[in-house]
């Protein structure tokens, strides 16, 4: 698992190596986390270990939206008050939670679990695109809101999705992009400015 002989390695070293494999964790941070675990109260370490075990064994993908859930359907997909005709497509479960925090959206979601990324060999087959197309073909969906990130990977994923969903009789929209709240024109890059100009609105 860690690429080392676990029996030969001392427990602190092994724990450090396990932490080092986590995203954004370097050798020093890994060592700090290991020492923290060794010095922590037994109760905390037990709860930590159980939380890991539970997340790993009980969590699966929602059979509709592909978000993580403990049940067949996640709480959003099984909520009868949600608008089932609109589906917002996001890259990651964290994006779904960010939109939920706004309290402005009452539709459904679909989580792709990534974006097209040639430098990481992530192709359409590696994302939950087929699941989305199948979901749409089953009927009942009228609008797809593509809410992938506004970076190159997110945009190209949005374009790919638009092509895949074209012809299925849907209204397809892309979340608005342009000047950020608090942004200053002087510091804004050309692509953002171009988008802000082309997506301009009449002031009521």
């Amino acid at each position: 698992m860690t690429g080392v002989d676990e029996k030969e390695c001392d427990p602190l070293e092994l724990l450090t190596r396990v932490f080092k494999r986590l995203p954004s964790i370097g050798p020093k941070s890994a060592q700090r986390l290991s020492l923290f675990i060794l010095r922590a109260p037994d109760d905390y370490v037990r709860a930590f270990s159980q939380a890991l075990e539970r997340a790993r064994t009980r969590t699966r993908l929602c059979s509709l939206c592909c978000d993580y859930t403990e049940e067949e359907l996640c709480p959003i997909c099984s909520d009868p008050r949600r608008n089932k005709k609109t589906v917002c497509v996001v890259e990651q479960p964290t994006d779904l939670r960010a939109i939920e925090k706004t309290n402005e959206y009452n539709g459904m979601y679909h989580v792709l679990h990534g974006a097209l990324s040639p430098l990481n060999a992530v192709s359409p087959a590696d994302l939950k695109i087929k699941e989305l197309v199948d979901r749409v073909k089953k009927g009942g969906i009228e609008e797809i809101i593509i809410a992938t990130n506004a970076d190159t990977e997110g945009d190209v994923t949005a374009s790919y999705l638009m092509e895949e969903l074209k012809g299925l009789g849907l209204k397809i929209t892309r979340i608005g992009t342009g000047m950020p709240a608090g942004g200053e024109l002087e510091y804004t890059d050309p692509i953002t400015l171009t988008r802000a100009l082309s997506n301009r609105k009449v002031i009521d």
């Binding site: 040639p118 190209v156 692509i191």
Partner: peptide, 23 residues
């Protein structure tokens, strides 16, 4: 930014071929 390449945001093949040259 001096130059940005809008096609790479729209076309997955062009994006992939640009990535291949860069890689």
């Amino acid at each position: 930014v001096i130059d940005a390449f809008p096609l790479f945001r729209k076309d997955s093949v062009a994006f992939g071929q640009a990535a291949y040259a860069c890689e």
